[in-house]
Structure formats: structure tokens, C-alpha cells
Design a protein around this nucleic acid. Structure first.
Lengths: 213, 213
DNA sequence: AGGAAACTGGACCGGTGAGTCCATTCCGGC
DNA sequence: GCCGGAATGGACTCACCGGTCCAGTTTCCT
């Protein structure tokens, strides 16, 4: 018994992971308050008591889920920015590519789960806000600023405050995405993402590019 | 009796307004689910039954509050964009000013209430999403695009897709604001808003300005 | 094999909150 | 000055949910 409907109970140690995943799904679908621990347990294919064994209470469950989510988001965002370190490639292509990767991160379902949950619960759990802002958003912006600074130093971008430029590149990328994705409700086709990234890179280069071409 | 703590009971017809305001405050503070109708009633200086007389149930209360909020937001945003119709003024100053006004809208407490609530409840009440996106965000973007198009026609901006340019201007303005305001938690000083607006106008003009000046 | 630790299912408690009801009181218009 | 509709408050129902408990079973480690 116990194989009905759920992913077959595997190694038996990663129940924890299953619970976390289920929690994320349910939190996202119903919101933190309306999410019943019973439901989460059921969706994880686990008894309610098991949930309380792993995490002491609902609140810690939320925090852990958050932590997992932002860890993942951070990694993916940093990876998106990393290729900008390339010193020789075609600058426009490089920017466009990084932009596209960032946009993909931004549009990923998990990313929306994170933002939605954060917006909803930031008032009640201010620490989560710190976790995500300082722990993810700021770090990514910083990393991006670093890359841009290098590019300025290499004479491939016009001088500017790198942190500000990074912020603005982000803005160009994501400014329209809230609307276009309808707050994560609608899935954006790859082609549209590409357009957004291209437009952002375009505008950014017009503003900050040297005439190098 | 009845004057304790609350705005003194005035004309006796705008109880409705009082309830709506209180609802907004409580929804914002506690979130929709945790907001007790009793609390809203108390904060409005009104009996619970009165709330149910005016609005049938909690859900309609939310919707009405939303409607009021987005109406207000729309008006203020459109007003912010309007001055751009000026055909002669200093372009940079004009953009900077419109930008500043938009930023102020974006940072206004009511604006954050709207966004937070929307993010949290968009899943459960998809119609609200439509109301705000189509009814406010799109309209504002369109209005901005209109102004930009005129400026292009007048030879004061380089040709570009106006809708896209408007989107990007918005992105430049607001991209950093989520972080800077810590999701509406922190109040941004006027000076900082001004800087953001200036930086946005700056970058925008570098990308889309003719060398006119 | 055997025992400890984890897991299960389900009953259970206590609190909370939406929505209803009603007898009473208040208030504005005629 | 009086009448009818709105407002009051407070009690009440009903459902749901977080968290606990427990007796029985599974799983893993040695």
C-alpha cells in the first residue's frame, strides 16, 4: 500500500524533501494561511505527524521552504550572470544571453512562488524579507555590477556607476515582465523572452556602449 | 457614545467609505485571510452587521476595496504622465519630472497595499488581476507610450516602438524600487526618489534622445 | 534476529473566524 | 413629533485548522 497517486515512496530519507516540495506547491496554490498542514502531508504522501516530526510547526515549514527556494534562486541567477566574465566575445550577444538567462530565472514558476509568498507574508515575517533581499536580490545585483565594472575597465562599456547600471539593466529586463506574465499566471513563450532580452540589451548598449561595434 | 478612538461618526452616509478604508488598512496589515471582519468593523467604528449590510460578504468587501484602490491609482498615474504632453519645455526636465511623479505613485502606501494584496490573492481571484493589469498598468503604459510617440513625431526623441520604450522607461524607474523600498516596508526619502528618476531619465535619453540639446 | 527510531492513521482538543439573528436604539425625512 | 429604515451589540452556529496523542506498523542498522 502507499503507492496510490503519489510519487512512489523512494529512499525513505528524503521524505523531508517531499514534504518541502509539497508545502511549496500548496503554499503557492492556496497561500500560507489557507494551506492546511493535512493537505500538505497528503500531497507529500506522508502522515501529518511526520510533518510535525521534521519541522516543528507550520511556521518553520514556511521558513525552510523559503530557504530552499532562495538558495536555488540564488544559484540559478548567479549562473545566469557568470558568462558575462568572458572578455572577448561579442558584447551584444553576451549581454543578450545573460539577459535571457536572467529573464528565464525571473519567469520560472519557483521564482514566482517565492515572490508571491514573500509579498504576502513579508509583513508578518520580516526576516524572510531580509533573507530574500539581502541573500538573493542584492547578491545578484552585486555580481552583475562586478561584471559590468570589468567591462568598463576593459574599455567595452562607457563609465558609469556599476551598481546603478546593474540595477537599470535589471529594470529593463524585468520591468515589463510582471505585466507580461500576469504575475506569474501566464507562461511566457521563449520567443517573447528573447525579444525582451534583446530589447533590453539594445537599449542598454545605446546608453552605455562605446561605439566599438 | 461611539466617539472613542475612531474618527467621530460624521454624516452617517459615508459609513461605507469608513468601512472600505478600514478594510484596506486591515487587509494590508494582516493579509486577507487573517483579517477578521470583526476587526475591520471595529476599526471602522461600526458594528459587524453593518459591514454585512453594505457588502454581502468578505469577498465582495475585498473586491470593492480593490476597485476603489485601483481607481485612485489610475488617476494618480495618469496625472503623473500628463505633463509630458508639453511640447516645448526642457525634455530632460520633463522626463525627470514625470519620472519622479511616477516613482512617487509607485512608492505610495496605497500602491503597495494594492500590489501586495494582488500578489497574494491573484491566484484565488483571477478577476482582480485583470482589473488591475488591464485597468491600470496597461492604461498607464499606453498613456505614456502616447506621449512618447508625440515626442518622436516632434523630432525630440529617436524613433522606436513607443509601447516598448514606455515599458522600458517604467522598468528603469521601478526596477530598483522593489529592492530599495524593501517591498514597501521602508519609506524611501524624497531625495532618493529624485535620484532614481534622474538616473532613469538620463539613461533613457542616452538611449532614445536625439542629440538636440 | 532484534530493537530503536521513524512512520502511519485517525481520533481528539481548543481556538478562531465567517456569517446569521434578533431585540433594541438611533436618526433623518415627512 | 412620529415612523421606517439603518445601525447596534452581542449571542450563537458551524466549519475549519493547528497541534497533540497514541497504539500499531514499517524500516533500518548492527
Amino acid at each position: 500500500m502507499g503507492e496510490a497517486g503519489t510519487a512512489l515512496t523512494r529512499g525513505r530519507i528524503d521524505k523531508r524533501r517531499a514534504i518541502l516540495d509539497a508545502a511549496l506547491r500548496v503554499f503557492d496554490r492556496e497561500g500560507y494561511d489557507r494551506a492546511g498542514v493535512d493537505v500538505i502531508a497528503a500531497e507529500a504522501g506522508v502522515a501529518k505527524a511526520t510533518v510535525y516530526n521534521h519541522f516543528g510547526d507550520k511556521e518553520t515549514l514556511l521558513r525552510q521552504a523559503f530557504a530552499a527556494l532562495s538558495e536555488e534562486a540564488l544559484a540559478r541567477n548567479l549562473a545566469a550572470v557568470a558568462p558575462l566574465a568572458d572578455r572577448d566575445g561579442d558584447l551584444r550577444a553576451l549581454l543578450e544571453d545573460a539577459g535571457l538567462r536572467l529573464v528565464r530565472c525571473y519567469c520560472a514558476p519557483h521564482s514566482w512562488t517565492l515572490r508571491r509568498l514573500l509579498a504576502a507574508e513579508a509583513g508578518r515575517f520580516p526576516d524572510l524579507l531580509g533573507l530574500v533581499q539581502d541573500g538573493v536580490a542584492d547578491r545578484v545585483n552585486e555580481a552583475l555590477a562586478d561584471r559590468l565594472a570589468r567591462l568598463v575597465l576593459a574599455g567595452r562599456l562607457r563609465a558609469a556607476d556599476p551598481a546603478l547600471a546593474a540595477e537599470q539593466f535589471g529594470g529593463l529586463l524585468c520591468g515589463s515582465l510582471d505585466r507580461r506574465t500576469r504575475l506569474g499566471t501566464r507562461e511566457v513563450p521563449e520567443e517573447e523572452m528573447r525579444e525582451v532580452a534583446r530589447a533590453a540589451a539594445d537599449t542598454f548598449l545605446r546608453a552605455f556602449g562605446t561605439g566599438e561595434l
